[in-house]
Design a protein around this nucleic acid. Structure first.
Lengths: 144, 144
DNA sequence: TCAATAATTTAGAATTATTTTAATGAAAAA
DNA sequence: TTTTTCATTAAAATAATTCTAAATTATTGA
């Protein structure tokens, strides 16, 4: 039998995590943090995460999923990826790395380690500084 | 006085260009080809190109601008860029090069020559082949 | 040259992803 | 607790793009 407390057996302390980035540990934010960060690296859209939360029995609106994802990005818990226009992907891996993007399926994959090396960057124009370098390796079905 | 023929003094033959890629040289397609390809490299959105066409006195609908941009991409006359989710940019430079993206202003700039070198690419997963490698160097106002 | 055919354009409706609004509910501070 | 502040939500609003079906225009072949 399940205990009466809402202990779902999460392996990390989402409350502490949220507190550490100055976000109130609400039911919704804890649930999303657990869905997103419990497992290893994930690439997900707001829409899909919302569906996943609902399937997991979490009552949450799509607007809150959007809000929360953006707050997580601001807090450095997630990184936002732009690979096809029209939808935003969120990546739970915030360390420096690049991506494969499958043009046929829309799937995103991390490129392992430093398998991509960007040599010699140009310097940024006028009063600008480089904030990030994104490398997207687009792949598609082999025509062979 | 202007001649009675519709000779607007374009420096290249848009009709021939369109024919060469199997697109009928309609009034609208010729006008867009001229706006896009007359000058050097451009990065533009459908919305902005539409406004520019209207300002130039070309009667054309936004739907046609979208259709035409995609046809030009398919024909290899343009390249579509994805840099911020929500809007698509089209680049008149179809040769191999990369981009700066100014996160503050939304401006795109070509990165000159081979100022960016991508060393060692990983090979594509399973039955996939690499179709393109995009490098986007995101810049923002200097915090200094 | 001209009708017949096929391709293109268009206005407007529809779609998709996302953001905003204004009201209600929950967490932190007093 | 009570108050204050922050978060959530449903629903409406917005933005970019695509679709639809009708009207127009380009090309082809007599």
């Amino acid at each position: 039998m399940k205990s009466a407390h809402q202990d779902v057996g999460n392996q990390f302390d989402s409350t502490a995590l949220l507190r550490s980035v100055n976000l109130r540990p609400t039911r919704q934010r804890k649930a999303l943090a657990e869905l997103l960060l419990r497992h290893g690296d994930r690439h997900i859209t707001a829409e899909l995460l919302h569906e996943e939360a609902l399937r997991a029995g979490v009552k949450i609106s799509l607007a809150t999923v959007y809000n929360t994802l953006h707050q997580f990005v601001d807090a450095g818990l997630l990184r936002e990826l732009v690979v096809d226009s029209g939808r935003a992907y969120f990546d739970t891996n915030t360390s420096h790395h690049h991506h494969f993007f499958d043009e046929d399926t829309g799937a995103l994959m991390d490129i392992p380690g430093d398998a991509v090396a960007v040599g010699s960057l140009p310097h940024a124009p006028n009063g600008r500084q480089i904030s990030r370098v994104d490398v997207i390796v687009r792949v598609r079905k082999d025509d062979a």
